Simulated scan of single mutants.
Amino acid sequence: MSIQPVKSLKLHKDKVWSIDCSKGLLASGSTDRSIKIMDLSKYELLDELDDTVHKKAIRSVAWRPHSSLLAAGSFDSTISIWTREEEEDLDNSWEMELLAIIEGHESEVKSVAWSHDGCYLASCSRDKSVWIWESDEMGEEYECISVLQEHSQDVKHVVWHPHLPILASSSYDDTIRIWREYDDDWESAAVLNGHEGTVWCSDFEKTEERLRICSCSDDTTVKVWRHIRDDEDDQQEWVCEATLPSVHQRAVYSVSWSKDGLIASTGSDGQIVIYQEVNGQWEVAAKRDLCHGVYEVNVIKWIEVEDKIMLATGGDDGFINVWDWSSDQTNTTSSNMNSIQESAISK
């Protein structure tokens, strides 16, 4: 298996922190305070959202499931909600408009994520808290229904299970916490200990057959955790099922679990690593160096491009790179990516 460059687009003037894909649209957020919307079928930039709305970097973007609603979390402590305008111009232009600004966090918002049914928006912050917001159907009104403050340090990332009302948060305190609803309130159901550094990101397995989550850390490892049981006090028991083969040489910033069971990771060393599970054992299926040249890679996501599963990454160089992977191609060198980048910039 090899990882091949498909497209490389210089969409931002500064670091790309976050990307999210829905219905063929890719949204990205950057230190340059802008949010870009791209059509993945044509690799065409559709819209650039107003970079005066937020006063500081856009740290996280997330599409609401089954809608055109987009949430963006910023270092200015606020969250913006955007939606596509109902009426398009006669020239078939594509625009999104600001729908709401959500305030509440006392420090930088590090991550935002929608629940699988779109009813809840979770956010986390440098203020050590996780907030859960309830949204109306139109996405215009937001009520904070729970403030979760069990983490002892900066909370880096939140992610919902793709089918269940379960939330995971990753923190500078080296832990992952699992949250779920109890008697109309949200509480910590489990604390996952095992990393020896900041946990930057986690992602749930997409199957409904079992409950597992992968995580990545400053300690250069990627781990897989499995839910064992719920005890009599409604607490969950989890175990670290596997530490994936050691490949990364520096902090791992982002992991993504695909629908077909592959885990992809990236980070400070600029590598993309794809892991696959074979007979219960995890092995490296493919890896690639210098994926954004000498720059760090901040985020990786499995995406769908015209029914094909691919990877997208965002780096400190301001590029968003799209990657294909296969088992019948030989690996290309970094110079190939350079030529693709130059071609993309000229367009």
Rank of each mutant, 00 (worst) to 15 (best):
S152N: 13
E150M: 06
V155Y: 07
C144S: 08
A168T: 05
G139I: 12
I132T: 07
S135W: 06
H151C: 06
I132F: 02
I145N: 00
M138I: 10
V155E: 05
S129V: 08
W160Q: 00
Q153R: 12
Q149C: 11
K128T: 15
K128L: 13
E143T: 15
V147N: 01
V159H: 04
L167K: 03
H161L: 06
V158I: 06
K128R: 15
V147Q: 05
I166W: 10
I166M: 09
W133G: 00
E140H: 11
D136H: 11
E141D: 13
S152R: 14
Q149K: 15
E134N: 09
I132K: 02
K128I: 12
P165V: 09
P165Q: 11
E141G: 06
K128H: 15
S146N: 07
V155A: 08
E140A: 15
C144Y: 03
G139P: 09
V158Y: 04
W160K: 01
H163D: 13
S146P: 02
S146W: 02
H163V: 13
I132H: 00
H157D: 11
H157A: 10
W160R: 00
E141T: 15
L148Y: 03
E143S: 13
L164I: 05
K128C: 15
E137K: 12
H157T: 09
